[in-house]
Lab assay of single mutants.
Amino acid sequence: LGPKYVGLWDFKSRTDEELSFRAGDVFHVARKEEQWWWATLLDEAGGAVAQGYVPHNYLAERE
């Protein structure tokens, strides 16, 4: 699936296409579209919880 990303700060969605998340949440990014990335929010087991657009500057690649 490629690298995983972690949320740096809490983010509250403003549209139906955006995905709310908390700092520390883990994502798989499917598409990078300039300022907004289409991402899947993952649970602790790595299963998909939700999908939506997230601001790229709120995520960091997980080491």
Rank of each mutant, 00 (worst) to 15 (best):
A45T: 13
G47A: 14
G2I: 14
E17Y: 12
E61N: 07
S20F: 04
V26Q: 10
F11P: 04
Q51K: 06
D10M: 05
W38C: 08
S20P: 03
A39L: 03
F21S: 00
D25Y: 05
S20E: 05
L8D: 04
Y53I: 05
D25K: 02
A60W: 08
W38D: 00
N57M: 09
F21I: 05
L41Q: 03
R62G: 11
A30L: 15
Y53N: 03
D10K: 02
L1V: 12
W36Q: 09
W36L: 10
W37P: 00
G52E: 00
A30W: 14
P3A: 11
L59S: 01
L19Q: 00
L59R: 00
D25C: 06
A23M: 08
K32S: 07
R22N: 11
Y5P: 00
L42S: 01
G2P: 12
V29G: 02
Y58F: 11
Q35K: 13
G7W: 05
D16W: 08
W38G: 00
V54I: 06
P55E: 05
K12Q: 15
G52R: 01
G2D: 11
G24V: 02
R31N: 07
V26G: 04
E18I: 09
E61Q: 11
G7I: 07
E61V: 14
V29K: 01
Y5K: 00
G7C: 06
P3D: 08
K4A: 10
D43K: 03
D43F: 06
N57E: 11
V29W: 04
D43W: 06
V29D: 01
E63N: 12
D16Q: 11
K32Q: 07
E33Q: 08
A48L: 09
E18P: 00
A48P: 12
P3M: 11
F11H: 08
A60E: 13
W36F: 11
N57Q: 08
G47Q: 14
H56I: 10
H56S: 15
P55M: 04
W37F: 06
P55H: 07
A45I: 08
V26D: 03
Q51G: 05
L1R: 10
T40G: 01
A60C: 12
G46M: 05
D16K: 12
N57S: 09
Y58W: 06
Q51A: 11
H28Y: 15
E63T: 13
A39C: 07
A30Y: 11
L41A: 02
L42Y: 06
V26F: 11
K32L: 05
R31K: 10
G2Q: 14
W37I: 03
E33V: 08
L59M: 05
A30V: 15
G47N: 15
L42D: 00
E34W: 08
V49M: 08
L1E: 13
E44R: 08
D25N: 07
W9C: 15
V49F: 05
S13A: 15
P55I: 09
R31V: 08
L19T: 01
K32T: 10
V54K: 01
A30D: 14
V49R: 08
V49K: 09
Q35S: 11
E44I: 08
T15A: 10
K4S: 10
Y5F: 09
D16T: 11
Q35I: 11
T40H: 08
H28S: 10
Q51P: 01
E61S: 09
E33C: 15
K32F: 09
W38Q: 02
G24Q: 02
Y5C: 06
S20N: 06
L1T: 12
V49T: 06
T40D: 03
Y58N: 03
E63V: 13
H56K: 14
D43N: 10
A39I: 04
E63L: 12
E44M: 08
K32E: 04
L59W: 04
F27T: 01
K4I: 15
E34V: 09
W38H: 04
W36D: 02
F11Y: 15
E34H: 10
W36C: 07
T15Y: 10
P3S: 10
A60S: 10
F27S: 01
Y58P: 03
D10E: 07
V49L: 10
A30K: 09
L41I: 06
A60G: 09
E34M: 09
L41F: 02
Y5R: 00
G2Y: 14
W38E: 01
T15P: 01
K32N: 07
Q51N: 08
L59Q: 02
D16V: 10
V6S: 03
D16R: 09
V29F: 02
G24A: 02
W9P: 04
G52K: 03
E44C: 13
A39N: 00
Y53M: 07
V6Q: 04
A23Q: 09
V49G: 04
Y58D: 03
E61F: 09
E17V: 11
F11I: 01
Y58R: 03
L19H: 01
Y53S: 02
H56D: 07
E44V: 09
W9R: 13
L41E: 00
L19A: 00
H28N: 09
A23V: 07
K32M: 09
P3I: 13
Y58K: 03
A50C: 05
N57K: 07
L19M: 10
Q35R: 11
Y5E: 00
F21H: 00
E33L: 09
E63R: 11
R22Q: 11
L8N: 04
W9Y: 14
F21M: 03
R14W: 08
E17Q: 14
L42M: 06
L41W: 02
F11A: 01
G24F: 00
E33D: 10
T40Y: 13
H56L: 08
T15Q: 09
V6R: 03
T15R: 14
Y53C: 08
S20Q: 04
K12T: 15
T15D: 08
F27E: 00
Q35P: 06
A30G: 12
Y53L: 07
K12E: 15
L41M: 09
W38P: 00
Y5M: 02
L19Y: 04
D43R: 02
E61M: 13
G47L: 14
A60P: 04
F11N: 04
L19R: 00
T15E: 07
E34I: 08
W36S: 06
G46Q: 05
D16A: 13
V6N: 03
D25P: 01
E17K: 14
R31I: 09
S13K: 10
L41K: 09
Q51L: 05
V49N: 04
E33F: 11
A30Q: 15
G7Q: 03
P55V: 05
F27V: 03
K4P: 06
L8Y: 04
V29N: 02
A50P: 01
R62M: 15
G52L: 03
V6W: 04
W9V: 09
Y5I: 00
S20M: 02
W37V: 05
A30F: 11
R14A: 12
E17H: 12
V29E: 01
A50L: 06
